[in-house]
Amino acid sequence: MLQSRAIAFAFVAPALLFLAAILGWPLVQAVLLSLQDVRVIGSPGAFVGLSNYERVLGAPAFWRAVGLSAVWVLANAVLQTALALAAALVLNEKFPGVRIARTWIIITWIVPTVVVVVIWRWLFSTSGGMINPLLLQAGLIERPVGFFATPWTAMATLVFINSWRWFPFIALMVLAGLTRVPEELYEAARIDGANAWERFKSITWPLLAPTLSVLAVIGTLLSFNVFDIIWLLTAGGPAGGSRTLPVLIYETAFKGYRLSEAAAISVIATVLLMAFAILATRTLEKGEER
């Protein structure tokens, strides 16, 4: 028994120590840093208590970033989950090439983000991009649109691009949930004369709803952290219209040279995210008990 316990520790310790060193210890350092007045990496700082937090919480730029992050996360969760659900329902059917489709749908997720950025920056651009001519031809717009030119179109375009990258990944998770719905249920409903919509409403949806809510939570956590797509496409602009919390943290630290203030924002962001994660898990678990 004692020996097996030693083996268990020997197995777990490397991974745990590794995570503690690369993620845990820096997290502690971030908290310490947020209580000092360090401006550039490597320079010494004095202890200033909670004054960084006071300054951050009193800054309109911070609250704007919180609001934009909330919009970003919510819009992505809705769009991603909707696209993922539709795609999963299609992939759950039988048609020629379904196995290939199930594998290759995820291609948007396996290519580097910077490639995603180049693809869409080009397609949305006004010189040679495909989107504007397509919309013009369809009569939806009268003149070419600068998608990254105004805050709201930029935000909407970024949400679309990020959801495009992530929805296939989530669709495969939804598909995993769908394949667990017993075929007999559908057969029985069909014999009772239920049409496709009724079958979806009374069988698929109730059985799938728990999976979808879990995925919405995971999707929220993942999209909160998205930095590279926003940074490379709009750098938080125009006029700060896409400056979400990760962008604000990066700017404060590496453009504004206020390292400690950036650390304070990141600590607040972590607390907000963890609070959301715990609250969401609790709500989901309660929902399951009912």
Binding site: I22, L23, W25, P26, L27, Q29, A30, L33, I41, L221, F224, N225, F227, L245, P246, I249, Y250, A253, L259, A262, A263, S266, V267, A269, T270, L273, M274, A277
Partner: peptide, 10 residues
């Protein structure tokens, strides 16, 4: 789940 950018600076 936690925001990776937090550990970037430290």
């Amino acid at each position: 789940a936690f925001p990776s950018i937090v550990v970037l600076i430290p």
